[in-house]
């Protein structure tokens, strides 16, 4: 009898194409010939795993977590450096002398190889443990990047979330994400005091930044130009100092935008309330520390741009509201081209 391993290449490619990714990974475990064949086969011949989300995280000092979900189920795998084992559902595999970082990255690589449809979310999270020289995870970010490079294909996801201590990793990882599919960027800082600063110039030049519609950045952003954020519909970021002039240019941009929804900005220092009153007229105020302004948006009867400055909370937000939610006594200023 002819064995399955004796099938010609085209036949094997066809069989793999009609299998689902779990069956292909099972075939890979059957024997050396299958393993070599599947490892060498072009990614385009592999079936689509149709995951909706993939998340790769350092969970604690010795553990990495890899989780992913499809339409029906979610799965997670833990890689524990303490006793060097991998744990998937009820199955625990002793990894012997093999480095758990390498195993976890290889598993992530397989998930990405099979993923052809666009992910809803791709989430990568490094922790501060990785910063220490003696940590088993010290080289993890560089190894993940090398794997992405080897993958030779941009990762298609609607939302990319990167959680890190080291802001330089944003520009290092962003190019591996497919800008055409991207809608939302989230950069979380592991420095809970929010003091890590980030120069946004280079990041704002990337197609990934330009194509996104939403931005959530926990790092303290420096040099963020208004023209670099005007394409977003939703923005959340922090910065050191803001000026009345800067806020006014933001107002001028967003008042014209038909897709603008929300901007949330935290600052360290702002003391130009008077200048703002000169520019925007007197503010409406119900609580002493909160100043409100209302502006009719361009080409819209319904949409009102609301700007609230909270001087005690050191934050401000721009959002879009309807006429009925405007408090009594507040003035809605007409749209003005200037």
């Amino acid at each position: 009898m002819v064995s399955l391993i004796e099938m010609p290449e085209l036949v094997m490619e066809n069989i793999i194409g009609f299998s689902d990714f779990k069956d292909v990974l099972t075939l890979r475990q059957v024997c050396r010939d299958f393993r070599n064949f599947i490892d060498d086969v072009d990614d385009s011949k592999l079936p689509d795993s149709k995951f909706e989300g993939i998340s790769f995280k350092i969970l604690d000092e010795t553990t990495i977590g890899l989780s992913y979900e499809d339409e029906d189920d979610s799965y997670s795998t833990g890689y524990c450096g303490m006793n060097n084992f991998r744990c998937f559902s009820q199955n625990v595999t002793d990894l012997g002398n093999v480095n758990i970082v390498d195993v976890a990255i290889r598993d992530l690589e397989w998930l990405l190889k099979f993923q052809k449809s666009v992910l809803e979310e791709f989430d990568v999270s490094f922790d501060e443990y990785q910063l220490r020289n003696d940590s088993p995870f010290h080289s993890l970010p560089i190894k993940v990047r090398n794997m992405f490079e080897k993958l030779n294909r941009k990762i298609k996801t609607r939302k990319f979330t990167l959680k890190t201590y080291d802001e330089s990793q944003i520009i290092a990882f962003l190019p591996f994400i497919d800008p055409d599919a991207l809608k939302s960027l989230e950069f979380h800082s592991l420095d809970y005091d929010g003091e890590v600063e980030i120069e946004i110039d280079e990041i704002a030049k990337t197609e990934q930044w330009k194509n996104s519609e939403e931005l959530d950045c926990e790092f303290r952003v420096l040099n963020l130009k208004v023209e670099d954020i005007c394409h977003f519909s939703s923005i959340n970021f922090q910065t050191n100092t803001i000026s009345a002039k800067y806020l006014d240019s933001m107002k001028k941009v967003f008042i014209k935008s038909s897709k603008f929804e929300l901007l949330f900005l935290g600052w360290e220092s702002f003391n130009e309330n008077e200048e703002l009153t000169n520019l925007w007229g007197p503010a409406f105020s119900t609580e002493t520390a909160k100043l409100h302004w209302y502006f009719r948006m361009k080409d819209s009867e319904e949409r009102i741009l609301r700007i609230i400055i909270d001087n005690t909370g050191h934050l401000l937000w721009f959002d879009v509201c309807k006429m009925e939610s405007i408090p009594n006594g507040a003035i809605v200023q007409d749209y003005n081209e200037k």
């Binding site: 399955l4 036949v11 066809n14 069989i15 793999i16 194409g17 009609f18 299998s19 689902d20 069956d23 099972t26 075939l27 475990q29 059957v30």
Partner: peptide
């Protein structure tokens, strides 16, 4: 034929 072989592999252990 290849579809049929793939069906025979489906859900089986190594």
């Amino acid at each position: 034929c290849c579809k049929q072989v793939a069906m025979m592999v489906k859900g089986k252990s190594p």
